[in-house]
Structures are given as structure tokens and as C-alpha cells.
């Protein structure tokens, strides 16, 4: 990597799940990472732009590593990033995350219950660690 090239932002792409709780968890986790935990290292990308084929969104996906979060097995976020020419560093399925944190049973669609919020927090913490590793690799690459 060119040392003068600014560090890439990690794209966080949640699914656009509207009718299911896990979709809401995916979105909430993405907000926690991009607004609270790692705001300067990450960027939230709306899936609808990739569906439309928006040039700026496609360009962002082509030029930055992505972490996808899917609410159901259809894995729309992961499929759309791949379809748009992106590379995925880590893909998360909320159901799998829930299996690791069974004490946090999420409920609610428009608004998550407390357990749903806690599950989103737990997922966001995992994502933040991945972002840190990616940034460390990037910085190491730049220095080396």
C-alpha cells in the first residue's frame, strides 16, 4: 500500500430487514459500531443504494473492505456486496451470533427489547474487534 494513501474505512453493511427482529438487530449493531464504537474507522452503507446500483455506493464497496450483517439466511447484505464487486472481511448472521449469546433473546421489530439491544451491543463489540484487527493490518502494511 502507498504510505501516503489514507487508511481505508471499513464499510459496515447491515441487511435491510424490515419484518423480522434479527433484521432490526443487524441494523442496530451497525449503528452502534459506526456511531458509538468506531465512528472514524467505519462507515455505514445503505443496502438500498447497492440494489439500485448507485455509482458512489458501488465505488465505496469496490475500494473498501466490508463487514456484512445479515438478519436471515437469505443473506441479502453479503450477496449484494459480492454482487457489487466488494470484498467481505467478515460476514455475520445474527442467528449465529444469538447462538453465542442465548441469554439475550431479541424481540420487537420497530423497537428492540432490552435483550435485543444487548445482543446488538455484543455483536457490535465483536465487529469492533474485527475493525481493530483490520486497521492494525492496514497500518502494519503501510509501515512495512
Amino acid at each position: 500500500m502507498n504510505p501516503s494513501h489514507p487508511l481505508q474505512k471499513v464499510l459496515v453493511v447491515p441487511c435491510s430487514g424490515i419484518g423480522k427482529t434479527y433484521g432490526t438487530v443487524s441494523r442496530e449493531a451497525a449503528y452502534i459500531v459506526t456511531e458509538d464504537l468506531r465512528p472514524s474507522e467505519t462507515r455505514l452503507l445503505a443496502l438500498s443504494k447497492l440494489v439500485l446500483g448507485d455509482e458512489e455506493a458501488r465505488s465505496a464497496v469496490e475500494g473498501n473492505p466490508a463487514i456484512t450483517i445479515d438478519g436471515c439466511k437469505l443473506a441479502c447484505a453479503t450477496k449484494m456486496v459480492i454482487e457489487s464487486g466488494g470484498s467481505i472481511t467478515q460476514d455475520y448472521a445474527v442467528l449465529d451470533v444469538y447462538r453465542r449469546y442465548r441469554q439475550f433473546k431479541p424481540q420487537g421489530i420497530a423497537e428492540l427489547n432490552e435483550c435485543g439491544e444487548q445482543l446488538a451491543q455484543a455483536l457490535a463489540a465483536e465487529i469492533s474487534q474485527v475493525v481493530d484487527r483490520m486497521n492494525a493490518d492496514q497500518t502494519g502494511g503501510s509501515n512495512g
Binding site: C15, S16, G17, G19, L47, V51, C76, M80, E83
Partner: peptide, 11 residues
């Protein structure tokens, strides 16, 4: 009834 927008492509 609703559908998630990305399913038009991913579905």
C-alpha cells in the same frame, strides 16, 4: 404485505 428491497436481486 412487505418485502425487503434487496430480495429483488438476492431472492
Amino acid at each position: 404485505v412487505t418485502i425487503c428491497l434487496p430480495l429483488f436481486l438476492a431472492g
